[in-house]
Design a protein around this nucleic acid. Sequence first.
DNA 1: CAGTGGTCTAGACCACAGC
DNA 2: CTGTGGTCTAGACCACTGC
Lengths: 232, 232
Amino acid sequence: MVSPVYLRIVEDIKKKINSAELKPGDTVPSEKALCDEYGASRMTVRKGLAVLASEGYIYSIPGKGNFVRKPELNKYTIYYSELKNSINSVDKAKLLEVNIIMPGDKLAADLQITKNKNVILIRRLFYTDGEPVAYDIKYLLYQKGMPIVEKEIEHATFPEMLSPGVPPFALKKEIIIYAATPGEDIKRYLNIYNELALLVVEQKIYNAENKPMGLGITYYRGDYIKLQGTSQ
Amino acid sequence: MVSPVYLRIVEDIKKKINSAELKPGDTVPSEKALCDEYGASRMTVRKGLAVLASEGYIYSIPGKGNFVRKPELNKYTIYYSELKNSINSVDKAKLLEVNIIMPGDKLAADLQITKNKNVILIRRLFYTDGEPVAYDIKYLLYQKGMPIVEKEIEHATFPEMLSPGVPPFALKKEIIIYAATPGEDIKRYLNIYNELALLVVEQKIYNAENKPMGLGITYYRGDYIKLQGTSQ
DNA sequence: CAGTGGTCTAGACCACAGC
DNA sequence: CTGTGGTCTAGACCACTGC
């Protein structure tokens, strides 16, 4: 059970980078030098370097060499869905309204459509342990094959509302996260009687051609939700 | 200017996945079949498949084949630093306090240390256009080479406070995002006179051995900051 | 010019799936 | 057993860099 040569190269170079023996900007030993050091063929060495490159540790400049990359210190990965995330989870959803509306100026601009195009509006309330914890609004462009049945809409996440009309791999998504104080209507929906902050998450879905397919806004009780992100 | 064979393989298979011709769970044509189809050697075909695998499109099971992966619909990438993010930016920081303290129960547990260990406390106020927009607290374990000079601390981000004692590639980080209402002290620091929500971002930094190195909490005026994340 | 990385081949041997 | 992917070699030719 000895690990393959290319993985030993990967591990050795990772160790040198993590221990600051190789610093950002430094050149990694040339492929020829690594061939000699490990007694390996060039393709094997290159496979190891390809792994390091795909993991963001190094990059290469043709004719010059391989170099240690500056780590992206500010990059985090976060898993978010309206109904489930790493810290909290919604156990029930109630459909408040499904309707077809004409967009106002802001919505038409957000969805990059003219104001005479119809938009599907979906409003829901999310519950945890019987308590309302979030108020959710979605605006969707109509897609072929989109679920119109209320049963299907009620517990669907945003991408699920669009598929199977749109294959999921082709979707690009964007979220914007901020805090706000609730207006009177949201206070009523979420049973808020005293001062309480909302965590607001806006979701925007684009198709493969970067055309907006839908906009979603979810207002969470601030004492209910926490989002979590990790680096690497 | 013809693109290399392995990239043509990558693009062709991506197209098939995005157009739902290949669905999650489907098998990609075998390496032998792709060799025949493109008139290429096996190593060239494998290079293309390696790219698709590293980008999350496919995975392989030895002895069985290559398969289309289910897309991670809930995964987002977010770039966050206390002082700068994609939508807003801090232009000035004021150091309120640098001190050495004994941790309370909660802080000791968070940092996984005993209560008799000293912790460095740093409190700052962030400004944009002359207005205070965020209140920032950091708790750090002392590291060799850590900057003690106030000038250096004032405008440093969390990872910068720890390096060069800790090489940046070795750091793992975690953020937790939530909304809250401000207490009296924060209202005073941030000039908040009426109802206003806070966006709170907790940062935790771990070294390569998963030992906590520091905890940071930043309280942003809700009308100031928006965090942005994108999929893919 | 020599040294670098980028692409590619035509084989090889291995371990594992499934019949 | 055949078919699959996983590792590896010893060459080749190309384009680019820098002296």
